[in-house]
Design a protein around this nucleic acid. Structure first.
Lengths: 214, 214, 214, 214
DNA sequence: GATGAATGAGTGTTCATTCAT
DNA sequence: GATGAATGAACACTCATTCAT
């Protein structure tokens, strides 16, 4: 639990040939490149396959259609985000609520920034496609991890840790679009992190009741 | 003849103008309908014009191209949101910070819910098109209004009201996509509002310094 | 004969109202302007009527369709050219063949240059539409005039003046396209005229047999 | 493997290449057919592709747009004309000026007649599109060849062979439109050739100064 | 398995023409 | 007569997907 056993990251069907692996990787990488250089609108199967150095036919051998290709991108992106949050939570079990808040925010923003080139495009995909199932899975993982960490907090107790975890997760995931929409300029990244941490800490403060013997 | 007759009041032109207005309205309404029933991908000029009960050519007489049509949608949506926030701020000048937080959150969510059908699609538009200018305008309006209201708060003083206003606005505008992503199920609307208000209040609390003579 | 009684220049059906005349003129002028500023491809009835300051409907009251409008343009252009040649011939009845050649070439090129802005576009029209009848009429007028002048030449006699006239006319009318195609650069205009005169003179020389008692 | 295998000789690719070549040829041929049966106005990509027995998409795989397709037609046409003139000049180096005139006229008219079906349409293209570069290239080739041949003429010397070559080329290329305009009826073809030769010969005669030792 | 030529339904957009006012 | 809103057929062009080689 919480160790990232999503089917997405768990390669159940390992491509048997090395060539296959190389091909899939090339396509994957090419998709990201095309996505960040041409955007979602400029992405088409021909362009991706050309950039990957394979033929369209080959692309279709690994992904049944364009949608599947995009789903795979989103899937991996969400898995990375969820894993980052989970790791932050795991490392802060039994820590103080304030520390947890900070760690989670930092982990999330860092993961997001690492994929800054593509995340707007991926966000677009998630609106375009019916990606509810994918997102549900990722957020459920995050909510669960955050909830568990909150429950274990050394200095506080929460009446409804899951509700709090859900709100925090929503606020967190909501920040990406804020960046995409440029409500927050990318230059403000540092400041945004600080403010987001304050937001989380004070929100947690409003919910927690001190642990007596602390 | 003989009267000043601004072209707008010229009685001979009225029937045509009325027709034009009716047509524009029909197209506008049709676009919203198509947007919420078929999504952004399923929206095409043929479909919109058919739903509006006019010919494609007519659509193009009022909107030079598809993009302009979508821009107009987004523009109106953002204007409604910004206006709602401004009104809430105006009505809470000199109020207590907590009341302001609550009023702004409620106003925003209410405006958003009123257009719930289309707003996901509109957010997609804002990513697809280069709508930065439009969004900048709307958020600047909101940030300004919130900043002014914070500065006038009867019970508190903020070191940097604009920074706080910016963060709150970002968090607010960011919530919509969170809803779109269904991180928060729509059924949780009531609860989401409550939590968001708590978040805002406590965040403001973390930033304010008591007004001495309070 | 030879005095320009083509139906084109002869206004058999005079518009009765002054307003009508003004409107027709405005449309005509607007068409020329649009033709030279936007080219034949950029010409459409809306643009012409707007430039003429009337509505499309009005345009269609005077010209049953776009083709008719363009025909009218070509018609007038050809009539002007034919008239210029006819005048040159009339003024050189009984002159020497060399003088005639020079006068005709100069008259033609001058008329052409005066309408240089539109003539490429008009030339295009003549290729686009089935303008054979129009062109036949204009060239027949020219051939006739040139033939008559040649027959009256004071210093020479031609075995087949009509054949010579026809060849010269063809060469003359053929020069326009040469200009349009930029086989001859417009800067060479002066030189082109000189060479064309030489061509005509020597061609006439090759055909004529000296009049004995001259 | 193991062999140098330029991609052009790769036997596995040959069938595909043959298919491509056949397709391009079919499109080319279809374009000419449509051009001569429906004219430039009646030519559209659907019609061409249907006549070629391929889909529109295929057409666009070989020509990026309609304009490129038409350019290709014009290019080939002009290349054929220029080549015909060059050959005539090459074969008449050191010949007498009169013979050269005759050979060039005959070569040009023959090449033109061979493509009589399309040449009017192609001339339209050259006016519609900005084909100056294409035409410049073709005429420069012709002017150069004619100029060289004139300079080598066994019986005459020209003060400015290039100017003469340019004028002749312009007159030559200008004749086609004259045919298009039907100033010269096609039935007169034979007679036109005769007259044109006379024209050229006498024009050359007017420019040449006898070679002393002739 | 790999290739890439071929497909064709679908989309945005234009514009000559009509006709109710 | 004048107006200009409305029409809709027509066109250029795209791209996900297939399949013969």
């Amino acid at each position: 639990m919480g160790n990232g056993s999503s089917p997405l990251l768990n390669p159940r069907k390992l491509p048997r040939q090395e060539r296959s692996i190389a091909t899939v990787d090339a396509i994957f990488e090419a998709t990201i490149q095309v996505l960040s250089s041409d955007g979602l609108i400029g992405l088409n199967t021909t362009r991706v396959s050309r950039r990957a150095g394979v033929s369209v036919g080959t692309l279709y051998q690994y992904y049944p259609n364009k949608q599947a290709l995009l789903f795979a991108m989103l899937e991996r992106h969400l898995a990375v985000l969820a894993a980052a949050i989970e790791r932050a939570c795991d490392e802060n079990l039994n820590a103080r609520a304030e520390e947890l808040a900070e760690a989670v925010v930092k982990a999330y923003l860092q993961a997001q920034m690492a994929q800054a080139e593509v995340s707007p495009a991926l966000y677009r995909i998630s609106l375009e496609l019916d990606a509810r199932a994918l997102i549900d899975m990722a957020t459920r993982r995050s909510v669960k991890a955050v909830g568990a960490a909150l429950s274990s907090a050394s200095d506080a107790q929460f009446a409804d840790p899951d509700l709090v975890a859900q709100t925090l997760t929503a606020a967190l995931y909501g920040m990406v679009p804020a960046f995409c929409h440029r409500v927050l300029a990318p230059a403000d990244g540092r400041e945004a992190e600080k403010q987001l941490i304050i937001e989380f800490r004070s929100y947690l403060g409003a919910h927690q009741s001190e642990v007596s013997g602390s």
